[in-house]
Design a protein around this nucleic acid. Structure first.
Length: 566
RNA sequence: GCCCCCGUAGCUCAAUAGGAUAGAGCGACGGACUUCUAAUCCGCAGGUUGUGGGUUCAAAUCCCGCCGGGGGCGCCA
């Protein structure tokens, strides 16, 4: 298990601060939270503390003087090489080189668990992502959703959380019925029946093909039964087909769920009725214009949300509960029946208006809203040859995710969809993603991994005839490029922690490029396999193995493959 | 009108809970393959972080106003 240097440094500083206060070097003031930053400039060391500036006001002392008194009380530590005070009051730490070199051995000992953290403390977290209507193939927008969710789940898991991945299937409601109508018509048309499309139908070739499939499989069987029954059955079977298709696409993205949760089951199980009763008992439901609304002081006036639509407007009882109605029962299922400590939702930004309702309903049900996190990601624009590919799912013109995978492959697809903060819209450049060249960061990262594998293979060939020391000695690693690579590798657990804390999985893509770049510089400056220097060669091979592990772990967290050769 | 997100180099974007000299890639220009993978590396150019105030020892980052772009405000899902 990885213990962060940063946290150890914070402990040292805390001890020093208390010691300084004990002997009156510093006045008794409340201890501030101790933060350590990583300076951008190498001359400022590996870590820096701003304690001097923070304490200046309460201690009524000059920041520089405070910093000096703190470091005078700093206990010795093997990982600390140099400690300096810098204006206006920074304390800068440089890590000890022998300690850095030893971390190569530590990484190798940890192997595939290197960089894992215990921060999560086995807290049970559910990440719900994907969750699109089962009425057509996943779009590129859904692609962003599942990549964010899956990567975040990977990160949470690495950080020590007990993670469950779930896809919520919206298999109920009027859209599903309209989908059934369309499937039926496409099926009938495939059999040569002149059946007109319903008022609201699902366009796109996907449903035409589905109708043809059904015509082939069932013949005219469903033309012989009552229409309503045929629509119902073909709708259900069609929905199942779409879900299967979605599952396939997810699998091609290396995304796997622990559970596919049916929205319909919330009603079939009676859970919705039960929660509805609870809300009614609490007085959270009001009747207005024939509909039932959820009202809450947290939402403010005029922001009531419809739970059950009015019979005057919606004749079919099954269509009356709203999407929000389902969400209420689903939330209860997550937090109470399945007792997840935390529920994370990944939603498209167009749902931002629904967010306050979830929190308000959690509160109304007596649940802590802090247990709920909703990640909103901005939209994806697909570019091809410099032209924006416009399209919408409901119009059947959206570019499907599986088509993008066909074109650029899973690795490039995942990387591209992950590479921006969730808060900014994402421009997916299909032409660039497809290009297998130095322009494409995806291959840059994988290339570094493949190159290490190649070096290790080469070493195996060259070194058979060379007499080698019995044990590798990592203390041979003193070259600046070697130490820079070690420092970069040690950042991975910090990146994991930060990505989890900020729910910002995109950090991984930048770290991956950074790590690959740092390795390339080492490769340029340090010849690894050198029969003339067997001890150094052995040490550098250990470094290469550690770098390979770190790159592979980074790629693994992003759900990408780590090729042995390219 | 109200709500959410964004505005950083020619382009696409980073910037670790406010920290020191704002960084990459692409594109432009100029270099490096008898050398462990050149899908690599090096050099050079490119900035008043949209704008005006405020808070702070310190602001791309926090607060307020304005300008510009995207999205949402349904008894759709």
């Amino acid at each position: 298990m990885t213990v962060l240097v940063r946290d150890q440094l914070a402990n040292l500083l805390r001890t020093a601060l208390q010691a300084a206060q004990a002997d009156q070097s510093l006045p008794e003031v409340n201890l501030p939270p101790i933060e350590l930053a990583r300076p951008k400039v190498a001359a400022h060391g590996d870590y820096s503390s701003n304690l001097g500036m923070i304490l200046a006001k309460p201690a009524k002392m000059a920041p520089l003087q405070i910093a000096q008194r703190i470091i005078a009380h700093l206990p010795p530590a093997e990982f600390v090489g140099k400690v300096e005070v810098a204006a206006p009051g920074y304390i800068n730490f440089t890590l000890a080189e022998p300690w850095l070199a030893r971390q190569v051995a530590v990484i190798l000992e940890n192997g595939s668990t290197w960089a894992n953290l215990r921060h999560g403390n086995d807290v049970r977290v559910q990440v719900e992502h994907g969750s699109a209507n089962p009425t057509g193939p996943l779009t590129i927008g859904s692609g962003r959703n599942i990549v964010i969710g899956d990567t975040l789940a990977n990160l949470l898991s690495a950080a020590g959380y007990d993670v469950q991945r779930e896809y919520y299937v919206n298999d109920v409601g009027s859209k599903v019925r309209k989908f059934g109508e369309t499937v039926y018509v496409r099926y009938a048309q495939a059999l040569g029946v002149d059946e007109p499309l319903p008022q609201e139908f699902y366009p796109g070739d996907f449903l035409v093909e589905l109708g043809q499939d059904f015509a082939r499989e069932y013949g005219d069987k469903y033309l012989q039964v009552p229409r309503a029954e045929a629509v119902q059955t073909l709708g259900e079977v069609g929905t199942q087909r779409v879900v299967d298709h979605v599952k396939q696409t997810c699998a091609r993205m290396n995304i796997h769920y622990d559970r596919w949760y049916s929205e319909r089951s919330l009603y079939d199980s009676g859970l919705f009725a039960q929660i509805y009763q609870m809300l009614e008992n609490k007085g959270s439901l009001i009747e207005k214009d024939g509909a039932i609304w959820f009202a809450s002081p947290d939402l403010g006036e005029d922001n009531d949300a419809v739970v059950i639509r009015s019979p005057q407007v919606i004749p079919n009882p099954e269509d009356r509960p709203t999407y929000f109605a389902s969400d209420i029962a689903y939330l209860w299922d997550k937090l109470v029946l399945r007792s997840f400590d935390r529920a994370i939702y990944v939603w498209g930004a167009d749902h931002h208006g629904d967010r306050p309702r979830i929190f308000a309903v959690a509160k109304a049900l007596g649940l802590d809203p802090q247990r709920v996190t909703i990640i909103l990601y901005q939209h994806v624009t697909l570019m091809k040859d410099g032209v924006e590919q416009k399209g919408s799912k409901s119009a059947g013109t959206a570019v499907a995710l599986h088509e993008v995978i066909d074109e650029v492959g899973m690795d490039a697809c995942r990387f591209m969809l992950l590479t921006r903060t969730v808060d900014s819209k994402l421009l997916f450049d299909l032409s660039l993603a497809k290009e297998q060249s130095e322009k494409n960061p995806v291959y840059y990262v994988q290339y570094a991994h493949a190159r290490i594998a190649s070096i290790l293979r080469k070493a195996g060939e060259v070194l058979t005839a060379v007499e080698l020391p019995a044990e590798p000695d990592v203390q041979q690693l003193t070259h600046p490029a070697e130490l820079a690579l070690i420092r970069k590798m040690l950042e991975l657990p910090v990146i994991i922690e930060q990505a989890v804390r900020d729910l910002a999985p995109h950090h991984l893509t930048y770290y991956a490029q950074d790590l690959a770049s740092t390795f390339s510089l080492f490769y340029r400056d340090c010849k690894v396999v050198d029969a003339e220097q067997p001890a150094l060669t052995l040490a550098r091979l250990q470094l290469c193995r550690a770098a390979k592990i770190t790159l592979a772990r980074t790629l693994e967290l992003m759900g990408m493959s780590a090729p042995e050769a390219m």
